[in-house]
Nucleic acid binder design. Structure first.
Length: 104
DNA sequence: CGTCTGACGATGC
DNA sequence: GGCATCGCCAGAC
């Protein structure tokens, strides 16, 4: 089943991120077939489907999104509310929280 | 159909 | 090791 567009794949992938886990833009982009399209994922994040858990999407540095409603501070609170530990530097523990979809 | 932009990434200094 | 710049591809206008 091939999604019609890149956007649809990203949205589907973000929606598949389990609670308490996070993924990077580059990772999502790579899984969608274009590791260089990380910025596209960001664009979709802002004007895409607001019902998706974009709070579980962080950049490769494990840093929170800059344009998230409320800023990184708001993003941080949402993540902590989901059980995700966020450092005071607005960074997440990639080694523990970075999630990867099952390739089964 | 051409052009600009972007919630990023990698590289250079 | 931190900051600046270029590059990137797909979407929006």
């Amino acid at each position: 089943m091939v999604e019609p567009g890149f956007k649809a794949r990203v949205e589907a992938l973000v929606a598949s991120i389990p609670r308490g886990r996070v993924m990077t833009y580059g990772q999502i982009a790579a899984l969608c077939g274009n590791a260089r399209a990380a910025r596209i994922v960001g664009g979709i994040a802002h004007f895409g489907d607001p019902g998706l858990p974009w709070q579980r999407v962080v950049n490769v540095r494990c840093g929170l999104a800059a344009g998230y409603p409320g800023g990184r501070a708001g993003h941080k609170q949402v993540l902590e509310a989901e059980g995700v530990a966020v450092s005071p530097d607005y960074q997440v523990n990639v080694m523990e929280l970075l999630w990867w979809p099952p390739r089964d």
